[in-house]
Structures are given as C-alpha cells and as structure tokens.
Simulated scan of single mutants.
Amino acid sequence: MTLKKFLTIGFVAAVLVACGDDSSSATDSDEVSSSSACEDCDGSSSSKAKSSSCSAKSSSSSSVPEWYVDPSTVVKGTMTDERDGQTYKTVKIGTQTWMAENLNYASYTDVPYEHYPHTSDSISWCYDNDPANCAKYGRLYTWAAAMDSVGTWTANGKGCGFRNECSPTYPVRGVCPEGWHLPATAEFETLFTAVGEVFTTGKMLKSTSGWNWNEHDDLNGNGTDDYSFAVLPAGGRNFDGLFGDEGYDASFWSSTEDDSEYVYIMYMYHYSNDVYLGHDGKYNGISVRCVMD
C-alpha cells in the first residue's frame, strides 16, 4: 500500500479553465487537476475526494496567451541559506522566483512528534531516516514545522498546527530562509498559469529522471523539466511514521489552511502529466519549496 492511501485528500481546482453548465466527474480517485477549475471550490473539509462540476476549456492553440512564460526566458541562479550555508538552485519564471530544489534545512529535529499511537523525536525527517535522501530530496516536514509554528524566525505562522486553526499573516516565511516564504495556493496557481499547458503542466515541471515507470499507460513517468523546476518524486511520511511513494509522487505544503486538520498542497503523480491542488493532513511529512518575497 502506498503512502497516498494513508492520506485523506479533498481537491480544489487550479487554473486555466472556466466553469460551464455541463457536469463531469473526475476519473480514478476523483482528482481535480490544473486542467479544470470551478467557482464552487470553497475548500470545505472532507475525507473524500470531490468531483468537479466544470468542463475544461483550454485556450486556443492558435494564439499564445499573454500570461504564458516561454521556457527560454527563465532565469536560473542560486541562493545560500545563511542559517546552515546550504546553497540551492533557483529559477525565475515570469514574475516569480522559486527554489529549484526542495528545502533541506534541519529544523525542529528536537521537537517531539505525537500522533496516537506513534511518537517521534522530530517533526522533520529524511525519507526512510536516511541522510542520503535528505541530500537528494530535501527534508519532509509536518505542516507545523513548515509554518514555523513556534515562531523561531517570525510570528506570521505562529500557532499553526494540527487540530489548531490559525490566522497566519501573509506571506508566511515559515521554515524558509530569510527573504523567502512558504507559498500560498494562489502562488502555486500563478506558477501553473505561467507554464500554461493545460494537460502537461506537471510534465513540464517534473525532473527528467527519477520517476518510476507509468504502468497505467506503459510510459516513462519522467518529465521534460522545461522550466528547470526539477520536481523529484520524494514521496512522504504518514502519521504512523511510515515512509512511502518514493519514485511515485511529490507533494508540497502551501501556507493555506483548510481547517484544523487539513491544508492545501500541490502534488504530482508518476502516472500523470498534470499537476494538482488538494488537501493533506497536517500531521503528514511532505516537501517544501520556497518562493522569493
């Protein structure tokens, strides 16, 4: 059983489309991807996936939308986290500058994790507790750790954690380096819009290696990494302390809370070329990508 089967996820729509009167149901696990959007996506809590009531309408292929960012215009760079000296690749896509690697700051390693019946001496981890995986994928953080819920660096996300609804002050630096912050869902949507490909946004943001074979379509699960965003399938850690889905999926925290137990995330699957926005439990451990202030 893969990690995603442990996660309780509901879905919201991303961008690039409009709602229509026709009703349609998402396939498989009722996912709603970047290729459909709906005004009725209110982010209400649910332990089941939501179906979309919108019909996808892609932009005309005969013209280039003004919000589309040509991959040849992206600007690659680096930044150094002064807290530990680690250097990260960065990429400027349109108006946004993102880290092009997952955060690997060893934060909250001495803060106890408790989610009955499992306990841990940390609320951030390397996949399979192997330091080599931190070097490869970055660390996996609970939402409380990602938001800096104890206020180590700023008070913007203080008090945000499992079973505790909060009112963060945006932007939320969270665990990110100074001058960077944990993205809100709207910032993920801006990224999707810039990439502009309705059904291949995920593929264009994925790394060109590391993803497992797509057994659904008998195709390679790797991406094309057109924008040097280089998403790797880091997997995650569930509330029982089990790691899973390395090679199969990637998930990233947002700073946008749904309710006391769930938060909006961005994620990708090895068998899909789409990118998704959905819910995840605050107690799980997943990746962090920071965006520049």
Rank of each mutant, 00 (worst) to 15 (best):
G202K: 02
A234G: 14
G43Y: 13
T201C: 15
K76I: 03
D274C: 10
T208H: 01
S59I: 07
A144W: 05
N212R: 13
V231S: 04
Q86H: 13
G241A: 06
C290M: 13
G179K: 08
W213S: 06
F192Y: 15
T152I: 14
F229D: 04
L219G: 06
A106P: 15
S251K: 09
I93T: 05
R83D: 07
G281P: 11
C166G: 07
H181G: 05
S29P: 14
V175R: 03
F239Q: 12
G151A: 10
E39H: 14
E246W: 04
G151D: 05
V111Y: 13
L3W: 14
S255A: 15
G94H: 04
D121M: 00
H216V: 11
W180D: 06
G223V: 01
E66A: 11
C41H: 15
L182W: 00
R237S: 02
T224Q: 09
G161D: 13
G241H: 07
Q96T: 01
N214F: 01
F229M: 13
T2K: 03
V69S: 01
V195M: 03
F239C: 10
S58V: 00
A37W: 14
T2Y: 09
D245I: 01
G157I: 05
D30N: 15
S254Y: 02
A250M: 02
E82K: 15
T95Q: 13
V288K: 03
L205K: 03
K4F: 13
S72L: 00
E215G: 00
G196W: 03
E114P: 00
Y283A: 09
S61Q: 06
G77T: 02
P131C: 11
A186K: 12
S122E: 12
N273K: 10
D293N: 15
M147K: 00
W253T: 09
S251G: 05
